[in-house]
């Protein structure tokens, strides 16, 4: 009786996940070996299996390499930046010398709950080379106006900055939980041994935060590889493809040009990369 009950309770959710998540994943894999395009969309009889042609074409496509390079740039610079800002904010708020902790925490967290599209629209204006608040603030310390979203060199840094502003509050909360779980007795023991602030941080706080770092690192990395709305809203992948991300490239191939076979191949390459980097991070952590 209780056996049947277990299946009865999980069945609806599992069925939905199987049909609308697992099945599409396998279908996407098959799709990536076909030439599914706008003609097949009209009449499925035009569909042909093309083996690994989509992947070969992809690896010969310079736009794909640009998108991949940009995405790695965003992950490799933006990821660590946002994690470090999160850690810094958590350390400051967690300090015993600070009051008004809730106020700081709440305000720091606000950007996380806001709608990405809306704040991306707002940042477009903040980044305006002439009227934007950011260049005005920078001119106060003598920095010449920067064409943040119009200059291929600055466009990706601009998106990275905006993403750090939007996201750091989330990891900050996780770091705060990690910091609060470190027993005071460890710090006391370190102080008895003559450890100063830096030593306490280096030899107590950091090692104790290692599992938190792993978790934060993995979820941030997975999220950052899926960069889409920021370039879609702020730059449309420009200027001269400087902010074209893998997911934006997939969206354009799949839903603008209806090359669904190609787009599926792009999606799978992204999946394999995310999987590989996740496993690598887990492995590195274990070795340490």
């Amino acid at each position: 009786m209780r056996w049947a009950a277990g299946y009865f309770f999980v069945a609806p959710a599992l069925l939905l996940i199987a049909v609308f998540f697992v099945f599409p994943v396998f279908s996407a894999f098959l799709l990536s070996f076909t030439d599914f395009d706008i003609y097949s969309l009209g009449n499925i009889e035009y569909l042909r299996f093309v083996g690994i042609d989509n992947y070969i074409n992809l690896f010969g496509n310079s736009r794909f390499w640009t998108a991949l390079g940009n995405t790695f740039y965003f992950v490799a610079v933006g990821g660590p930046l946002s994690v470090l800002v999160s850690l810094g904010a958590a350390l400051l708020i967690n300090s015993k010398l600070v009051r008004l902790k809730t106020l700081f925490r709440t305000v720091y967290f606000l950007p996380v709950v806001t709608t990405l599209v809306a704040v991306a629209v707002m940042w477009r204006y903040l980044y305006h080379p002439r009227y934007g608040l950011l260049n005005f603030a920078l001119s106060g310390i003598g920095i010449e106006p920067i064409d943040w979203l119009g200059d291929p060199f600055w466009a990706m840094p601009a998106i990275i900055l905006m993403a750090a502003w939007k996201n750091f509050g989330y990891n900050m909360i996780i770091f705060l939980a990690g910091l609060q779980s470190i027993p005071d007795s460890l710090y006391e023991a370190a102080r008895v041994d003559g450890a100063n602030r830096w030593h306490q941080f280096r030899y107590v706080t950091l090692p104790m935060l290692a599992p938190t770092f792993l978790f934060v690192g993995i979820i941030t990395m997975i999220g950052y590889f899926q960069l889409f709305a920021e370039p879609y809203v702020m730059t449309q992948g420009g200027p001269s493809n400087a902010t074209l991300s893998v997911v934006l490239f997939m969206y354009e191939e799949g839903f603008r040009w209806w090359n669904l076979g190609n787009a599926a191949a792009i999606a799978f390459v992204l999946f394999v990369i995310i999987l590989a980097v996740t496993l690598l991070q887990l492995r590195l952590q274990r070795e340490r």
Partner: peptide, 26 residues
């Protein structure tokens, strides 16, 4: 309790690493 419970649950957790964009086309 039901047969395969823990195995199914582990499989679900492993599936969390799949980016949702993979499913969007199909």
């Amino acid at each position: 309790r039901f047969t395969g419970r823990d195995r199914i649950f582990k499989a679900l957790l492993a599936a969390l690493v799949i980016p949702v964009q993979v499913t969007m086309l199909p």
